[in-house]
């Protein structure tokens, strides 16, 4: 794998992750604001199913099957030929379609910069903010038990 393939793979992993985790309503709002209506063909219509979630015994040991989770997947091909796919936790078909379309367009250099700035960046900012809020709430419950010997950290 060449360096640039590696980079584009991780760039794609990044936007796929943001598109999957984004709040469904926020995704649709941002997407509609872009007013892009690409021509596309379904390779796989949005489809709801399950994936078996796996864990590791003791967190780092042998894998085991933890239980299933719902997810929705979709694949579209644009007129340009690029294939966009999505795998989104939950059962929201519209979310999966939009994520697949965005994934396809993001592979297109003509759209990439605009979509990164106007779709991925704002959605990611929301995810980051939500995470920071959760962390702050958890952090507020952090406790130092009374202790006789404890170095300052």
């Amino acid at each position: 794998m060449t360096m640039s393939e590696q980079q584009s793979k991780s760039a794609r992993q990044h936007w796929i992750s943001v598109l999957a985790k984004a709040d469904s309503k926020a995704l649709q709002d941002q997407w509609q604001a872009l007013a892009i209506e690409p021509e596309y063909q379904f390779i796989r219509k949005p489809e709801i199913g399950l994936t078996m979630m796996r864990g590791r015994v003791g967190g780092s040991g042998q894998p085991f099957n933890l239980g299933e989770m719902t997810l929705t997947r979709c694949a579209v091909r644009l007129a340009s030929g690029s294939l966009g796919v999505s795998y989104v936790a939950g059962r929201n078909k519209a979310h999966a379609l939009t994520a697949a379309l965005a994934d396809a367009l993001l592979q297109d250099r003509d759209y990439q910069v605009a979509l990164q700035e106007q779709l991925i960046a704002p959605l990611e900012a929301q995810l980051v903010a939500a995470k920071a809020e959760r962390e702050a709430k958890a952090s507020a419950t952090k406790v130092d038990f009374f202790t006789l010997v404890r170095g300052e950290d």
Partner: peptide, 12 residues
């Protein structure tokens, strides 16, 4: 090869 993929069933 994603360039070779074609549609499956219309209604899976």
């Amino acid at each position: 090869r994603s360039d070779l993929l074609m549609a499956g069933f219309d209604d899976a």
